Amino acid sequence: MKILLFMLKGFETMECSAFVDVMGWARNDYHYDVSIVTCGFQKRVVSTFHIPVLVDTTIDQIRVDEYDALAIPGGFEEFGFYEEAYDEQFLDLVRKFDTQGKWIATVCVAALPVGKSGVLAGRKATTYHLNNAYRQQQLKAFGVDVVNEPIVIDKNIITSYCPQTAPGVAFTLLERLTSPEQMEIVKQAMGF
């Protein structure tokens, strides 16, 4: 199983690292067939709080049929997150993953570009729920049935409502790509 971990400009490192660590433990310690390929618009992506990260590949190199899932950490508007998150090239990538029925796992506001792409219209999802839930209102404006719960799954799309949920989203994705039993082994080994 191959997961495309997409690091948009201004992504949150904590939300990103949950996918890296959960899949890393699964692959390294338990030999599960799950690997992560990091991706961005450029090879060097600057996260929220100005941490530069080098990614494995860029968006123009991606062939969706080579991946089993797309994982998207959220980010901060003031660090440029929506400049790339709402870019048509990225929205099209989301649509291609959904059309092929592949898993799409988002943390916090990463649900917003998925909503903007149109694939969540008429489906249940969630996003950042604090500060008067204005991000949830933005998601609702894309025709999404917003549910104020920590993690919401509708068909092949996993959404969540704040950074705290990142490990839960990563474990949920691992469970969908392997099995509940295999996920529990990794979860317990990591102390969750």
Results as ranks from 00 to 15, higher is better:
Asn131Ser: 04
Ala85Lys: 03
Phe79Trp: 14
Leu54Lys: 12
Met190Asn: 10
Gln138Arg: 12
Glu12Arg: 14
Gly118Val: 10
Gly74Pro: 01
Met14His: 08
Val45His: 08
His129Arg: 06
Val34Arg: 00
Lys9Arg: 15
Lys2Met: 05
Thr99Val: 11
Glu184Tyr: 05
Tyr82Ile: 10
Ala111Asn: 03
Phe192Pro: 00
Phe11Asn: 04
Ser117Ala: 14
Glu184His: 08
Lys140Ala: 15
Thr178Trp: 11
Pro150Lys: 07
Leu174Arg: 07
Tyr134Cys: 05
Glu15Ile: 03
Val55Thr: 07
Phe90Arg: 03
Ala26Ile: 02
Lys43Asn: 08
Asn148Pro: 00
Leu4Trp: 09
Gln164Glu: 14
Glu149Thr: 01
Ile36Gln: 03
Asp68Val: 01
Gly74Val: 03
Asp98Val: 08
Phe19Gln: 00
Leu174Asn: 11
Val144Ser: 07
Asn131Ile: 04
Gly24Trp: 06
Val147Leu: 09
Thr13Cys: 11
Val114Gln: 05
Leu130Val: 11
Pro163Lys: 04
Glu12Asp: 12
Leu91Arg: 02
Lys116Gly: 01
Asn28Ala: 09
Tyr67Val: 03
Gln42Ser: 14
Lys140Pro: 00
Ala69Trp: 02
Asp33Arg: 07
Asp145Ala: 11
Gln164Pro: 00
Val144Met: 10
Met23Thr: 07
Asp98His: 15
Asn148Ala: 14
Leu4Asp: 08
Leu5Pro: 00
Gln89Thr: 14
Glu15Thr: 05
Glu77Gln: 13
Glu66Leu: 14
Phe79Glu: 08
Pro113Trp: 10
Glu88Gln: 15
Val147Lys: 02
Ser17Asp: 12
Asn28Lys: 13
Gln188Tyr: 12
Glu12Tyr: 08
Tyr30Phe: 15
Pro180Asp: 06
Asp56Gly: 06
Met7Pro: 00
Gln100Cys: 04
Thr172His: 01
